[in-house]
């Protein structure tokens, strides 16, 4: 395989991923509005918000698709040393 072949495949795969992401983003943000289901703050969000997060949704679509399919209704809770210790219970 020549460098040109490798580069062609990389660009094709990246293009397919980006195209799938763009399609997902349009459905997720504007048509099926999955974003409203996984994040309550999106329901009252502006249209401008949907456009401004579109590039990120197209880039990280597998993460959001997984959360949407899993039926998430709130953003995840963050984890740090204090929160882990508090969740572990105390005497």
């Amino acid at each position: 395989m020549t460098p040109l072949d490798v580069a062609t495949w990389i660009v094709r795969l990246a293009g397919a991923y980006a195209a799938a992401g763009l399609l997902f983003a349009l459905l997720f943000l504007f048509v099926l509005r999955g974003v409203d289901r996984i994040d309550p703050s999106a329901r009252a969000g502006s249209r401008g918000f949907r456009w401004i997060v579109l590039p990120g949704v197209a880039a990280l679509w597998p993460l959001l698709l997984r959360r949407w399919l899993a039926g998430a209704s709130e953003p995840p809770e963050e984890s740090n040393a204090h929160r882990r210790a508090a969740a572990g219970g105390r005497g």
Partner: peptide, 20 residues
């Protein structure tokens, strides 16, 4: 830099959680 710019909105802060 694209990934950073594209995830700069607070929506991403909530979805990824602050540490991530």
């Amino acid at each position: 830099l694209f990934l950073m710019a594209a995830t700069s909105h607070d929506f991403w802060l909530a979805q990824l959680t602050a540490p991530v």
